[in-house]
């Protein structure tokens, strides 16, 4: 975020990350999936990220752990620039960052038994001692709440929740510190969602993990995150601690998005803000603030000037011209 600021306990810092997809390879029709995002992620925190589908959440998550090449910008993990690592160093770095996928049935190789799937990470990293691997696999299975006999099953013989647990176990196999949860519970039904969410937060406490938690389900992100980032069209529009965001949303988009959370209590159901129009195409984002085409509060500056992500309250960052003056006051 703000470069000069000294942060303790920093695990990952993304600086001006851009991920573009050049569809034709000729420089036209470039999809700007992620367009200049900078964030810091602290050790042992859950950083939730929300946004509509297609806003670049997953792409950004994959970029953070180097599964997609960055077009521009850098990602530091413990001050190490992950974009500059050699092949060997990268392989080592992979142990420290893992990913949990959205679709539990697509993330496990259908031809292999659970046991073989869980052995793979060790084999990749040159651990061939069978006893060591077996002990570790059984430990992992216990950790994610599965029984030993599941090891001899094929993925299609397991339920969605069980498959997702295997996916989690595989991600944990190499004792990572940082895990990208890419819609990790979206494909599960609600009761199983709760179980897996609880499992994830237990594991975080037990193993001191850090999550980058991607979801389009606002309730899920709200329930689990310490800090929440809101993305729109490849840009971060608001970043704030959970409490702060719960009390006050600054960005008009965040307001609209969070007003869409269904509430059980009728009194709590606030006026829903309904946005007009469609999300503009990421191949050709509008000039100035990318939200101005749909923003109910836009004014002339929004069309011409790109707003920066600025601190308007302690630890609460917003990219909106409405609050330019707040930032000055805050920093005074």
């Amino acid at each position: 975020m703000v470069k000069s600021k000294k942060v303790d306990n920093l695990l990952l810092r993304a600086e001006n990350v851009k991920i573009y997809f050049d569809q034709r390879g000729n420089g036209k029709n470039v999809v700007k999936a992620v367009d200049g995002i900078s964030i810091d992620i602290m050790r042992n925190e859950i950083f939730g990220i929300v946004g509509e589908s297609g806003c670049g959440k997953s792409t950004f998550g994959r970029g953070l752990i180097n599964l997609l090449p960055l077009t521009e910008g850098t990602v530091y993990i413990d001050d190490k620039d992950t974009t500059q690592l050699s092949k060997e160093e990268m392989k080592d770095m992979r142990k420290r960052m893992q990913i949990i996928f959205q679709d539990p049935s697509a993330c496990l190789n259908p031809r292999r038994k659970v046991k073989e799937i869980l052995m793979e990470p060790f084999k990749i990293h040159g651990i061939h001692d069978k006893d060591v691997i077996n002990d570790r696999i059984i430990e992992l299975m216990e950790l994610v709440g599965l029984a030993k006999y599941h090891l001899n099953r094929y993925p299609h013989e397991l339920s969605g929740g069980q498959k997702q647990r295997i996916g989690i176990a595989r991600a944990l196999a190499l004792e990572p510190e940082f895990i990208v949860c890419d819609e990790a519970v979206s494909a599960l039904d609600v009761s199983v969602q709760a179980q897996v969410l609880n499992l994830l937060s237990d594991l975080k406490e037990k193993l001191g993990l850090t999550y980058f938690f991607i979801s389009h389900n606002l309730n899920v992100v709200y329930q689990i995150s310490d800090r929440v980032g809101v993305m729109y069209l490849g840009k971060m529009v608001e970043v704030a601690p959970y409490n702060s965001l719960y009390n006050k949303r600054y960005h008009p988009y965040t307001e609209a998005l969070l007003s869409a959370i269904p509430q059980v209590d009728k009194d709590e159901q606030k006026q829903r803000i309904i946005l007009k129009g469609e999300v503009p195409s990421p191949t050709n984002p509008p000039p100035g603030c990318s939200f101005h085409t749909r923003c109910p509060k836009k004014f002339s500056k929004c069309v011409t000037e790109i707003p920066l992500l600025l601190e308007v309250e302690k630890d609460h960052f917003v990219a909106c011209h409405l609050y330019d003056s707040f930032h000055e006051i805050h920093n005074r």
């Binding site: 599964l67 960052m97 893992q98 990913i99 993330c107 190789n109 793979e120 996916g167």
Partner: peptide
Amino acid sequence: NEYVEAARALG
């Protein structure tokens, strides 16, 4: 498929 990506993520 995501299992291919998972394998890449494992190194």
